[in-house]
Amino acid sequence: MNYESTSYRAFKVANAVLLTILVLAMVFPYLNVLAYALNDPLDSRFGGITFYPRVLSFANFDLLLSNPDIVQATLVSVLRVVVGTAFALAVQYTCAYAFTLRGVKGRGAMLMFLMIPMYFGGGLIPVYLLYSKMHILNHFLVYILPVSFSLYNMVIIRSYLYTIPESLAESARMDGANEFVIMLRIYVPLSLPILAVMALWTAVYHWNDWTTTLYFVTDRDLFTLQYILMQILKEGERMASLFQEAIRSGNATSVGTQPQATPQAIRAANIILTTLPIVLVYPFLQKYFVKGVTLGAVKE
């Protein structure tokens, strides 16, 4: 029979209460946004919506999805996530594995060199000129190549690789295996937790990013879903601002009809559409996420 002291039982109760409060504090904002997204767009202007819609309606999503470019943009975003995540993992993992090899000379100097861009950057104009010289402006590769390497991710992967017994690689070398085979046959299968974590981080970045399209892409066939949704949101905010200004000046008829939805309602539907894929994928990667971050961040 396990005996629990009074102080320990009090700690468990306090811990449960605190965690419950934290869960509610994190879940309630998302439920509030979901309620606004599912509420009638014109009714949303009266406010007072908490965690359930007052007038259930899918008009906000219909407004976003009615854009003619939405299908093409969705395909571009999905392709960017798949290709960009796979390529980034390949680059970062091979680099991390190379930094674990003791026979590589100058590892410290190379690591210091790679750390420089973390603290110093040239700014947007030099980056634009660089991409222009690389001929990746208005090209799908502008989404893939510039963010294929992350020193932060590479260091975490390297720390994880240090937890794998080196005797496994030594045995493989004695059997005649080269470094490429050792990496693919031994290290990669043992690195699934950290690879899942890095895949989630990279995929989230690719899925949410819209500034790359804003700065470096003008071809509508390469617009991402997030950029299209941002355009719809900004246009809704502009029309709402013009309508309110016309009402104040008494010239409401000069700007046409009333906007179909409030900017807040459009923003809520936008958030739901962009976060829903990540919310659906995360539960399947959660067990790898905890293990990968823990082992990748601690080196014995």
Rank of each mutant, 00 (worst) to 15 (best):
S167R: 10
L114D: 06
S148T: 13
I49F: 08
L184Q: 02
K287G: 13
V155L: 14
L124W: 07
N270F: 15
L141Q: 09
N138C: 10
V188K: 08
L225R: 05
K105V: 11
N270K: 07
D175M: 05
R45P: 04
I194E: 05
G236V: 06
Q258I: 14
N138H: 02
E237P: 00
P263A: 09
W201D: 06
Y30H: 06
L38D: 04
I70V: 15
L225N: 05
L242I: 09
S241G: 02
Y227M: 13
L273V: 05
L285R: 01
F284A: 15
A59Y: 00
A252L: 12
V127P: 00
E235R: 03
L195F: 05
G296K: 13
Y97T: 03
T100H: 09
G121K: 10
L190H: 12
I228K: 08
N153Q: 13
L79A: 12
S159T: 08
Y187L: 11
P146R: 00
Y8E: 15
P117K: 11
T218W: 04
L276F: 14
A169Y: 01
P126I: 07
S5P: 14
A35Q: 09
G256D: 11
S191C: 02
T20D: 04
I228Q: 07
I186T: 01
L130K: 15
F223I: 02
A86M: 05
S241V: 02
A269I: 07
G103F: 12
A88V: 03
M198L: 11
G84S: 06
A16Y: 14
N138S: 04
N138K: 08
I247S: 13
H139Y: 00
F180A: 14
V13C: 05
V290M: 08
L124F: 10
A172L: 00
M118W: 07
